Simulated scan of single mutants.
Amino acid sequence: MRVEERARMLQSPLNLAHRHFAEMEILTAFLDYVERERRLAANTVEAYGHDLASFFGFLNGHLGEDIGIKAFRHLHASDIRAFLARRRREGLSDASIARVLSAIKSFYHWLDRHHGIENPEIAFLQGPKRGARLPRPVSVSAAKDMIETAEAFAEEPWIGARDVAVLTLLYGAGLRISEALGLNGDVRPAPERLRITGKGGKVRIVPLIPAVRKAMDDYVRYCPYTISKETPFFYGARGKRLQPAIVQKTVQVLRGALGLPETATPHALRHAFATHLLAHRADLRAIQTLLGHASLSTTQVYTGVDSERLRAVVASAHPRG
């Protein structure tokens, strides 16, 4: 985030109340830290900036004075709870409250590391407990429609074949988008089993069904760029490795054309892979292996999705539903 953009954010009408120059210096330094050293995403940095600017403004009124950096040493957990309670009254959800508290804790970590300001009370604060969000897979028909329609919206035939191959890998093999786009040209011709290095360097072997292999081989035939062991497998239009943002944009276009909900994302195709296997009685441990989950508990969320689907079927079809 550029300096001028950050300055406009911190000086917005919402955050200008009780703003003191010293506070802006403190906040700017912290945001530089989380952006450059912790490498947080730009959206997260911006959210932290708004949350902490609101927190500083609250403290000015709450304490009855302009705050300096040393004031943070003497805050109590009750002060933080009072701020979170106000944000709750303003309509923030549990997830947003948890994010605000995360921003405050990260800020205190920075204060301790860079200014020697400790406050043990803050470390033990806990945010609202959030229930595990169920994955939102697309339906079987929606997945097929997305894959079959992708070619029609492409500017060139080879790009259409590429988009079909990418979406087919996500739905037909359960790959993450980063895993699919990280493939190199040594997977041509498409093998029966694909060696994938996933999160945390965890390696897994994923079988490729004929439909997936055909889509990959069709793309290779159309692709105008050289595909070899030293090159990317999936190319962008300008001859560089295909980026996730391009796939996400393609899916957004397909979503609009097909009238699908906003939850129909590239990752929803991976969710659909797992959910549809489970619906057809695949073993949960096998699905765990295919997805590359380190813990079975991560895979078990899909049983909740399947239960929801079954309840919906019973409710709609049972005479007493």
Rank of each mutant, 00 (worst) to 15 (best):
E5R: 04
E5V: 11
M9A: 11
P13T: 05
L14R: 15
L16N: 12
H18I: 00
L27A: 06
T28D: 14
V34F: 02
E37R: 07
R39K: 14
A42E: 10
G57P: 05
G61V: 01
L63C: 02
L63S: 04
E65V: 14
D66L: 13
K70T: 14
H74M: 09
D79E: 01
I80E: 00
R81F: 06
F83K: 01
A85R: 11
A85P: 03
A85D: 12
R86C: 11
R87F: 08
R89F: 13
V100G: 02
L101V: 07
I104D: 02
I104R: 03
S106N: 14
P135F: 05
V140G: 11
A143F: 06
I147E: 00
E148N: 15
P157Y: 09
G160L: 09
L167Q: 05
G172W: 04
G172M: 04
A173R: 00
R176K: 10
R176A: 08
I177E: 01
E179I: 02
G185F: 03
D186G: 11
R188Y: 07
R195V: 10
G200L: 06
V203D: 12
I205N: 04
V206A: 13
P207V: 09
L208G: 05
D217I: 00
R221S: 11
Y222R: 15
Y222K: 15
S228W: 02
E230I: 00
E230R: 06
P232I: 07
G236C: 02
G236N: 07
L242R: 13
Q243L: 03
P244A: 08
A245Q: 15
A245F: 08
V247G: 01
Q252T: 10
Q252S: 14
R255P: 04
P261S: 03
T263E: 13
H267N: 05
H271G: 00
F273K: 09
L278A: 02
H293F: 06
A294E: 13
A294L: 07
Q300F: 02
Q300G: 01
V305E: 06
S307I: 09
R309L: 05
L310T: 03
L310Y: 05
R311Q: 13
R320F: 09
